[in-house]
Structures are given as structure tokens and as C-alpha cells.
């Protein structure tokens, strides 16, 4: 079970958090102008990487804030945590 450093509350048990899938997928500003394929790309396509992955997490049983996490899915090492809207600190 991870120990997650919430950027607002500090280090907490994983059980307080909820994973929210891949990060940095921006909702299209004008969905109506997209083709079915383009919309499907936004709606369904996810990378699901074995290795370093950018993810969204929510401190659902804490401050309820969303934030981003960089995690290596092959060994569960958390590389970085940063707030929504911030640039990833590592590539």
C-alpha cells in the first residue's frame, strides 16, 4: 500500500486516495467540431504504460483535492507529485 504525499495534506495512506487514470488529457474546448475518431481518441484511448506513467489522483477521504502523480507502474515507485495545472517536474 502506497504512502502518498498529498500536496495539500502531507503523507497519507493510499486508502485515503482514489486513482483517477491518466493525467494531462485535456478536454477538447469544442467537442462538437471533432470527428467521431477524434472524440473517441479523447474519450477512450489511454496509454496504460508498464513503466513511468503520469496519473491523476484524488485525496477523496481527505481534502478532496485532485493532483498529479508520476509513478513507475512496474515497481510502484512514486517519482513525483505536483498540483493540477503545474508542469511535470520530471520528464
Amino acid at each position: 500500500m502506497f504512502l502518498i504525499n498529498c500536496p495539500f495534506c502531507g503523507e497519507r495512506e493510499q486508502s485515503e486516495f482514489k486513482a483517477g487514470g491518466e493525467a494531462h488529457i485535456i478536454r477538447p474546448k469544442q467537442p462538437t467540431e471533432l470527428s467521431d475518431d477524434e472524440w473517441a481518441e479523447y474519450l477512450f484511448m489511454r496509454k496504460n504504460i508498464k513503466g513511468v506513467q503520469f496519473e491523476r489522483w484524488n485525496h477523496v477521504h481527505g481534502c478532496r483535492k485532485w493532483f498529479n502523480m508520476i509513478r513507475d507502474t512496474s515497481n510502484d515507485q512514486i517519482k513525483a507529485i505536483y498540483k493540477m495545472g503545474e508542469k511535470p517536474p520530471v520528464k
Binding site: 484524488n58 485532485w66 493540477m84 495545472g85
Partner: peptide
């Protein structure tokens, strides 16, 4: 509530 918070915080801050 979780879904609404998600949109507020991440898509429409």
C-alpha cells in the same frame, strides 16, 4: 460530488 469536483478542479478551474 466526486465527479463535479473533478470537473471543477481539473477542467474548469
Amino acid at each position: 460530488l466526486g465527479k463535479l469536483e473533478d470537473y471543477l478542479q481539473t477542467e474548469w478551474p
